[in-house]
């Protein structure tokens, strides 16, 4: 009972609900362009993602959809210092796992905003999955491969992407 009380649990119904933050995230992730050429916008988006080191994994032109990923090391000095600190403070008993590897992924959609399709919207989300290495807590070995995922909510990343995209299509990116 006590244990279950500690774990925050989200009901599935809540995950299908728009929250107060949805519109804030949407504003960050979305720009619109005054152009009838959706195909050009999509291929330019793919090119920008390639420039950023992504591999396009899935593309569906008819619905204006792209999914791309890139894998990178997730090692950070800070975590190693923290690990060493914990090791000393726990008298050699706690060797906390550090982030080893990450997969940064993105989903992008374009869609016409009006009937005449002279205005197109581009909406992109970035997220990452991180894999941890192994560790040890007292005599208990912590196996490697523990993973967690997070949505990337840093506005700067999105601004950078849209700046590059707007340069690639010679159009101004309007915020919604």
């Amino acid at each position: 009972m006590l244990l279950t009380g500690c774990v925050t649990h989200t009901e599935p119904a809540e995950l299908f609900q728009l929250t107060a933050e949805t519109s804030k995230h949407r504003a960050m992730q979305t720009r619109f362009f005054e152009t009838p050429n959706e195909k050009e916008l999509l291929s330019a988006s793919a090119a920008v993602l390639q420039d950023l080191g992504f591999q396009v994994e899935e593309s569906v032109r008819e619905v204006g959809f792209l999914r791309a990923t890139k894998e990178r090391s997730a090692r950070e000095y800070g975590q190693y210092i923290q690990r060493a600190l914990f090791l000393v403070l726990s008298f050699g008993k706690l060797l906390s796992p550090v982030d080893l590897h990450q997969k940064i992924a993105t989903g992008l959609i374009t869609r016409p905003l009006n009937q005449a399709a002279t205005r197109q919207e581009v909406c992109i989300v970035f997220y990452r999955i991180v894999w941890k290495g192994d560790g040890q807590a007292d005599r208990q070995y912590i196996p490697p491969g523990q993973q967690h995922m997070e949505m990337i909510r840093d506005p700067e990343i999105y601004q950078q992407f849209f700046a590059k995209l707007s340069k690639a299509v010679f159009l101004e990116a309007h915020t919604i």
Partner: peptide, 16 residues
């Protein structure tokens, strides 16, 4: 697709 993405879902596949 747009509403799923708004809800924080990651689109894996689409087939028009």
């Amino acid at each position: 697709i747009a509403s799923l993405q708004d809800l924080g879902f990651i689109i894996e596949r689409a087939n028009e």
